[in-house]
Amino acid sequence: MSGNGNAAATAEENSPKMRVIRVGTRKSQLARIQTDSVVATLKASYPGLQFEIIAMSTTGDKILDTALSKIGEKSLFTKELEHALEKNEVDLVVHSLKDLPTVLPPGFTIGAICKRENPHDAVVFHPKFVGKTLETLPEKSVVGTSSLRRAAQLQRKFPHLEFRSIRGNLNTRLRKLDEQQEFSAIILATAGLQRMGWHNRVGQILHPEECMYAVGQGALGVEVRAKDQDILDLVGVLHDPETLLRCIAERAFLRHLEGGCSVPVAVHTAMKDGQLYLTGGVWSLDGSDSIQETMQATIHVPAQHEDGPEDDPQLVGITARNIPRGPQLAAQNLGISLANLLLSKGAKNILDVARQLNDAH
């Protein structure tokens, strides 16, 4: 009898209710805020589980004197976190989706994509230029951005401005803007500013005609071990179906173009009346040469937790077992079709030249 009692006690200790789920994140304040929001949602869904947040620095956090596009290494903000995932030191990792490459290392998958916040870019102005827009900034004003995508589009749109690289986390960039006289304004992701509670610093939100956004911008991705079915089931509740389908289309477009950090590629997606609209573009580094096109596809946005595919093969690095396969494939095909259209119009040449120029500098 006593033996059975011990077995029952052991089973209770090993039951999922007692389990601590370890969540990996970057150390920056924004990353911690984003991770806290994901953990809060998981806690609400699984009140019996405990969650421990483990923060670590990544290569991208450490190399702050070089433009991201020049470092010449993929997975700048993800490699150390993936290493911890691989060694079973954490069970899942919360990322900004735009930091996750469209091809993940073997053994990993994006197990959830959370509801997207505003994906557009924002302009934050130096205190002396508050009330201005990019259009009304004085001639030769210097605007800071760490992104080739932003610089290429904005140089084309605002030729009277000069664009220079600015690195560091959000706090560091804002301090550089406010305390030094080098920059009249800087460009940042609206979602990051909003998550930090800095709505009052948003001086201008850039519309798609001015600057399309990065693939996955404004959404959070939760990376897990691809074979860890328990954790895949656990994080599945975080999937937002519309965000998922938009981001599958965007990531398929980028992957098929073979774009990345070192080339200016941008997108804009919208879901309306059962249609998914995808606009994508590529630019030369100075913005003088560009190709942009829009395509659409009829896609039914499923309700969360309709029964999805059981075999769960990944699409552009994403596993969404609780979302039907048909809409996911339709979104992926839309991204591939748009990429093929741009490639047929000469996108590869623009991107190759951009890559060579970026590598040469």
Rank of each mutant, 00 (worst) to 15 (best):
V124K: 05
P324C: 04
P105A: 12
K272V: 15
A266S: 07
P47K: 15
T59R: 08
L193Q: 07
L341V: 10
A84W: 06
K128T: 15
K128P: 02
T109Q: 07
M56P: 06
E242D: 12
R19C: 04
T133K: 10
L97I: 08
H160L: 10
T136E: 11
S184N: 12
T294S: 14
R246E: 01
D178T: 07
L206S: 04
L148A: 01
E52V: 12
R167T: 12
T35S: 09
I350R: 06
T25N: 05
G287T: 01
H256P: 05
P138F: 07
L100G: 01
T145C: 06
T172H: 07
L100P: 04
L278N: 01
E135G: 09
H120V: 09
V224Y: 03
G192N: 03
D240S: 02
A214M: 14
R225N: 03
G203P: 01
L351N: 01
L76R: 12
S45K: 15
V215E: 08
K98I: 04
A152G: 11
Q29A: 12
Q328H: 11
T145N: 08
L97A: 11
H207N: 05
Q217A: 06
K70N: 15
V93A: 12
F129H: 11
G111H: 00
L238W: 04
Q296A: 01
T190R: 07
R164Y: 07
L206F: 12
K70S: 07
D240A: 08
A112R: 00
E223Q: 02
T145H: 04
E80P: 07
S288Y: 06
S69F: 09
S146Q: 14
W283Q: 11
R156G: 08
I186P: 02
I63E: 02
L177E: 01
L161F: 07
R164I: 09
P47H: 10
S96H: 04
G218H: 01
A112E: 03
T25L: 00
D228A: 12
P138N: 11
S69K: 14
V130K: 06
K115H: 08
A360G: 14
K115P: 13
N118S: 14
E179C: 10
K43S: 10
K115A: 07
L174I: 12
A55P: 11
M212V: 04
A219D: 00
D240V: 12
A67G: 09
E258R: 01
I63H: 06
G197D: 04
D61F: 00
V90Q: 05
G335P: 01
H239V: 04
G192T: 04
S262V: 11
A151E: 04
K128G: 12
I166A: 08
K98R: 02
V222A: 10
L338G: 03
R150W: 04
K115R: 11
P127Y: 01
D228C: 12
E242T: 07
I71S: 10
L170G: 12
G280W: 01
T145D: 02
K79S: 14
T59D: 14
M271A: 03
I54P: 03
L100C: 15
G203S: 15
N88V: 06
N200G: 09
T78N: 10
L92Y: 03
P127H: 04
I54G: 05
D240E: 15
G48W: 10
A270L: 02
Q314C: 12
V222E: 01
R156A: 13
D61L: 10
V202A: 10
E80I: 09
G107K: 07
P241W: 14
P159D: 07
